[in-house]
């Protein structure tokens, strides 16, 4: 059966995914809006940077984060000057890493939804004297709701499935940085295959249910 250590890893993973998803929805929405509306020549560059975690090996991201957030790195010096210490081996450190790692999974569905809203709706709202913020929250957000749901579910699920980055910067500390994927790896390395099976099967079922939900929702095309 699941041990206390396994349960702690599951709790931590859910907490990490929740915090990361909330932050990503807050940070990702303006980025998605800008990408959907802009005609700037920088659109391609920003879009590419956002998409980088889709193709980069997690080891690259993890390695750079470890160096950048360390006491000799630019981020590490900044956080130390604020009296916060350094981020690797801490829960906030994992959150920062996960936000980078799952960014495209939130930005892209929201961006697609924003693009689908179209110019005419915004013009109609403007003729009715709606201000930009009013238009955004009363017209755009309700119309883009399916995109937000997809983004939240994918951001959450992708963070739950994170492994390489956490392994590189986590330090495997119980209840702080030992997430389920790392716990499974530990079990396998220690030849505790029964425990590894239990957690792995749980992950498999969770991932399948999430994708099933996304692909069978009524009237929503599968995320491209």
């Amino acid at each position: 059966m699941l041990t206390e250590v396994d349960l702690a890893a599951i709790r931590l993973t859910l907490k990490l995914a929740t915090v990361t998803t909330v932050i990503l929805l807050i940070v990702g929405t303006p980025i998605a809006w800008w990408l959907a509306r802009t005609r700037s020549k920088w659109k391609g560059v920003v879009g590419a940077v956002v998409a980088l975690p889709l193709v980069l090996p997690p080891t690259v991201l993890g390695f750079y984060l470890l160096v950048a957030m360390g006491p000799n790195g630019p981020v590490g010096r900044f956080t130390e000057s604020l009296g916060l210490g350094t981020l690797p081996f801490t829960f906030p450190g994992l959150v920062v890493a996960s936000v980078f790692y799952s960014l495209p999974f939130v930005v892209q569905p929201v961006q697609n939804a924003f693009e689908a809203v179209g110019e005419r709706m915004l013009e109609a709202a403007a003729t009715l004297r709606a201000g930009p913020l009013d238009t955004f929250f009363s017209v755009v957000v309700p119309l883009a709701r399916p995109g937000f749901v997809t983004a939240a579910v994918l951001g959450f699920a992708h963070t739950v499935g994170e492994f390489g980055v956490v392994l590189m910067i986590g330090g495997n500390i119980p209840e702080k940085t030992r997430v389920v994927s790392v716990q499974i790896y530990d079990h396998v390395e220690a030849l505790e295959y029964a425990e590894a099976h239990l957690l792995s099967a749980g992950m498999l079922a969770f991932s399948f249910v999430v994708l099933l939900f996304l692909y069978t929702r009524k009237g929503v095309r599968a995320w491209k």
């Binding site: 470890l66 160096v67 790195g73 081996f89 590189m168 330090g171 500390i173 790896y185």
Partner: peptide, 20 residues
Amino acid sequence: KFVTGENISQTYQFIFTGNA
């Protein structure tokens, strides 16, 4: 205060980068 490396090389890397 433990941070655990997956193997001894990763442990070295934690110290080398000054994170530990």
